[in-house]
């Protein structure tokens, strides 16, 4: 693959207004989390890559979105053979959330996950709760997964109906960055303030939202396995928004 892929734009070389950033891979060495969200809101779909993440991995994902939807963990990291580092479950619209979370908690009991355990538990809760809200059919299924190696943990949730709206998620996240969570909650009294998306994004170092309308949606977070929570929440984050085009 050419290092001069036209889909990749390096922020240090970019002249504002010269090119559209829509559906481009924007690469910058120090893009702060709120800035990445603003770039995504203005140019979605778009992929914002920072903090040393390999932009050509994103090129590969865009070249085969179906493969990413089918094997999201393996598309991002080298998945190990160690089954204690892998948890995949399929759930349905009428699955019990407490049972699901109990299984996640049991898997995370291994002290290899001690620094990410509480955060992954929260991410799992958010992903399951959002799925349950959008799955108005008890037969609709989602696949939840955790894949980990020594360095990175990937947490994802994939459905097969593809109705996720990335723009809504991004707008909610932007509101939390602009006004703070407390004010975002007050402003949206009576409605969901959407702080779940903000939390998921803040807890990791990368968030991918992929939609193939009518076929599937994927929300995926990745976290460095050994970083403390209080360090991770301050790290820059990559933000990958992909909307598959109908072929």
């Amino acid at each position: 693959m050419s290092k001069k892929d036209k889909r990749v734009i390096y922020l240090k070389d970019y002249v504002k207004g010269a090119d559209s950033l829509e559906d481009k891979i924007i690469v910058g060495s120090d893009i702060r989390p709120g800035e990445a969200v603003n770039l995504a809101v203005e140019n979605a779909p778009v992929q914002v890559v920072t903090n040393g993440f390999d932009e050509f991995r994103v090129v590969k994902i865009k070249d085969d979105v179906n493969k990413f939807l089918e094997n999201p963990g393996e598309s991002l990291i080298e998945v190990t053979e160690d089954i204690s580092m892998r948890f995949h479950q399929t759930f349905f619209g009428n699955s019990n959330k407490s049972d699901f979370l109990a299984q996640v908690r049991q898997f995370l009991g291994n002290n290899k996950f001690r620094r990410v355990r509480d955060d992954i538990f929260l991410i799992a809760d958010e992903l399951f709760t959002n799925f349950a809200k959008s799955a108005n059919d008890p037969a609709k299924s989602m696949k939840f997964g955790i894949d980990a190696n020594d360095d990175t943990v990937v947490v994802f949730c994939r459905d097969h109906f593809g109705t996720l709206n990335p723009k809504d998620m991004l707008a909610n996240m932007q509101r939390c960055f602009d006004k703070g969570v407390k004010n975002a909650i007050k402003q949206e009294e009576g409605k969901g303030a959407g702080i779940g998306s903000y939390l998921i994004y803040t807890l990791g170092v990368g968030l991918a939202i992929t939609v193939d309308p009518g076929k599937g949606s994927l929300v995926l977070v990745w976290l460095p396995r050994t970083a403390h929570h209080e360090d991770r929440i301050e790290m820059n984050k990559s933000l990958i928004i992909i909307e598959a085009k109908e072929s």
Binding site: F121, V181, I185, A193, I195, G196, Y198
Partner: peptide, 13 residues
Amino acid sequence: KAINSVGIRAWIM
């Protein structure tokens, strides 16, 4: 045991 985003909202309110 845990708190999620809806719980955070309820707590703050």
